[in-house]
Amino acid sequence: MSGYILFSSEMRAVIKAQHPDYSFGELSRLVGTEWRNLETAKKAEYEERAAKVAEQQERERA
C-alpha cells in the first residue's frame, strides 16, 4: 500500500460526501490535485502509515 492510496481512500469519502453528484473521474482528479498540493510532511505521514499497514498485512498473511 502506498501513501497515496491511503490518502485517496480517505479523501475520496470526504469529497464524495461534499459532492455526491461528482463522477468517479471528477473525484479522482480532485484527489490527485489535493495530493499534489499536500505538504511534504503530510505526505510523509501517509507514507509511514501505509508502510505500517503493509507490514501488518504481511504479518497476517504469514
Rank of each mutant, 00 (worst) to 15 (best):
M1Q: 05
M1D: 11
M1A: 11
M1P: 04
S2V: 03
S2F: 03
S2A: 06
S2I: 03
G3I: 00
G3T: 00
Y4C: 02
I5S: 12
I5K: 15
I5M: 13
L6N: 04
L6Q: 03
L6R: 02
L6E: 04
L6T: 03
F7P: 02
F7I: 00
S8Q: 10
S8T: 10
S9I: 06
S9N: 14
E10S: 02
E10A: 02
E10N: 03
E10Y: 02
M11K: 13
M11E: 04
M11G: 01
R12W: 12
R12F: 11
A13K: 14
A13S: 14
A13R: 12
A13G: 11
V14T: 11
V14C: 07
V14H: 13
V14A: 12
I15Y: 11
I15T: 04
K16C: 06
A17S: 11
A17Q: 11
Q18L: 05
Q18W: 01
H19K: 08
H19G: 03
P20N: 03
P20E: 04
P20M: 03
D21T: 12
D21W: 04
Y22W: 06
Y22I: 14
Y22N: 05
S23E: 08
S23L: 02
S23Q: 05
F24W: 12
F24L: 14
F24M: 14
F24P: 15
G25A: 14
G25H: 14
G25E: 14
G25V: 11
E26Y: 04
E26R: 09
E26Q: 12
S28I: 05
R29T: 09
R29C: 07
R29L: 06
R29V: 06
R29P: 02
L30F: 07
L30P: 02
L30G: 06
V31I: 13
V31M: 11
V31G: 01
G32M: 13
G32P: 02
G32Q: 15
G32H: 14
G32C: 13
G32E: 15
G32Y: 12
T33W: 08
T33H: 13
T33A: 11
E34G: 06
E34D: 03
R36L: 09
R36T: 11
N37L: 08
N37S: 07
N37A: 12
L38F: 00
L38E: 00
L38P: 00
E39K: 07
E39H: 10
E39R: 05
E39S: 14
E39N: 13
T40A: 12
T40Q: 12
T40M: 09
A41C: 08
A41T: 11
A41K: 13
K42T: 06
K42E: 07
K43M: 03
K43A: 02
K43E: 00
K43S: 01
K43C: 01
A44K: 12
E45F: 04
Y46W: 12
E47L: 04
E47D: 08
E48H: 08
E48W: 06
E48P: 00
R49I: 02
A50F: 02
A50C: 03
A50I: 01
A50M: 02
A50K: 00
A50G: 04
A50H: 02
A50L: 01
A51Y: 06
A51R: 14
A51Q: 09
A51H: 09
K52R: 13
K52A: 09
K52H: 10
K52Q: 10
K52F: 07
V53W: 10
V53A: 06
V53C: 11
V53M: 15
V53T: 09
V53R: 10
A54S: 10
A54L: 10
A54H: 11
A54N: 07
A54F: 07
A54K: 08
E55G: 07
E55N: 10
E55H: 13
E55F: 09
Q56S: 13
Q56W: 10
Q56H: 09
Q57L: 10
Q57P: 09
Q57C: 10
Q57W: 07
Q57N: 10
Q57S: 10
E58T: 12
E58I: 08
E58V: 10
R59Q: 15
R59C: 12
E60S: 09
E60I: 08
R61M: 08
R61I: 12
R61V: 11
R61L: 12
R61H: 09
A62S: 14
A62M: 00
A62P: 11
A62I: 15
A62K: 06
A62F: 12
A62C: 05
